[in-house]
Amino acid sequence: APAPILKQLSEAGLTGRKAGRGFYTYAAPGSDEVVRDALTPLTAAEGGGGRAVRSVGVAGSGTMASGIAEVFAKAGYEVVLAARSQEKADTAKARIATSLDRSVSKGRMTAEARDTVLALITPAGTLDAFAEVDLAVEAVAEDLEVKQDLFARLDKICKPGAVLATTTSSLPVVACARATTRPQDVIGMHFFNPAPAMKLVEIVRTVLTGDDVHATVREVTAKIRKHPVDCGDRAGFIVNALLFPYLNNAIKMVQEHYATLDDIDAAMKLGGGYPMGPFELLDVVGLDVSLAIEQVLHREFRDPGLAPAPLLEHLVAAGCLGRKTGRGFREYARR
C-alpha cells in the first residue's frame, strides 16, 4: 500500500516540482530552486511561540461537544457552543450543567465554581457566533463530507488568524484543511470520550499545518490540563491504530466460538492489566463509531486482517450500538 504521507501530499495538491511544492517548496511550479516559505516546516530552534487564545468555539451538540466545551470553560476560557439550532445548543449546555452538578454533589467543586463555569459558556444556534473566537473546535458527526462542509463555513466565518481544529478520530485532517483557504491554520485535536475525564489529546499536524498553530494547540492543551501527544496525519493516529485491531480480533474470537465475551473481558482485565475488557469498551465507545473506525483503517492500510468482523456489522445493522441504545454486546438497564 502507498505510504500515508504520499496520500496526504496528493490530497493537499502538493505533487512535487510541477506544483511548486511537494516534500520541498520551490520558487515556482516546474522550478528546481528550493525556497523557504510559511508552509515549509521550520526546525525546532527556529520555530516561534503560539497564538493568543482567549475564546473558544465548539461546534456540535453531542456528548463529545458538550464534554469539550466543559473542559475549556473549567480552564477559564470563554466558550461559544454552537449547534444546528438554539434548542440543541441549550440542551448541550444543560448536559454540561448536569455534569457539573454531579461534581458538586461529590464534593469535587463548589456551587460557586459551577456557576462560574456555566457563565463562561454561551449556547448559539448558528456558527456565525464563531466570528471572534480564537480557536474553533468541531465535534460533529464522523463523516468527511459533513466535516468538510463545516470547515468551508468556518473558513468564511472565523477571523483571520483563528485556529481551526477537528476532533476526528480517524478521518484525514488534511482533507478538512483543503476545504479552507487557510490550510496552515487547520490541525487535529483528538479528545477522548468522556472528554472531562480522559487526560489524553492527540495533536495531529498535517503537511500544511503552521508551526505556530501546532505550538498554539500544545499550549492550550497544557492549559486545559490534558496530556498532548504529537502524531502524523494517518488513519487511527496512535491510539485507534493500535486499539481497534485488538478490539476487532476480540470480536472474531467470539464469532468463531473460540471464547466467550465474558471470559475474554476477564482475561484482558486480569491478565493484560486493562481497566476494561474489549467488549465493555466497545459498548462504551459505541458499535457504530467502532465500525466506522474499523472501516477507515481497512481502507487506509488494505490489510485483510483489518476488515471489520461480520458480527460487529450485524449488530450495527440491527441498531444494537452499545450502552447508548441499551444493547450492544450486552444488554443494559434503561435509565
Rank of each mutant, 00 (worst) to 15 (best):
L270W: 07
F130P: 00
G30K: 02
G326T: 09
R102W: 09
K88E: 14
E219W: 08
R21T: 01
T221E: 11
V79E: 08
G49L: 10
R335P: 15
A27I: 02
D32P: 06
K199D: 13
C176R: 09
E11C: 11
P194E: 03
Y24P: 01
K147R: 07
A69G: 07
D101K: 15
C231E: 04
R327N: 09
F244A: 07
Y274D: 11
K88M: 14
V204M: 08
T216H: 11
H190A: 00
P245C: 13
F72K: 06
D185W: 12
D101R: 15
D263N: 10
I96G: 07
G272M: 05
G286F: 13
M64N: 02
S99K: 11
L321N: 02
V204D: 11
A59S: 12
E142G: 00
A59E: 06
A82I: 07
P4D: 09
V34I: 12
R330A: 15
R95F: 12
R51P: 06
T126A: 12
L312A: 00
T91M: 13
L291I: 07
S99A: 15
V316A: 02
L154N: 06
P2V: 12
L287F: 04
A162Q: 00
E145M: 14
Q86S: 11
D263Y: 08
D32Y: 08
C320H: 13
T43D: 10
E11R: 15
V133F: 09
E313L: 01
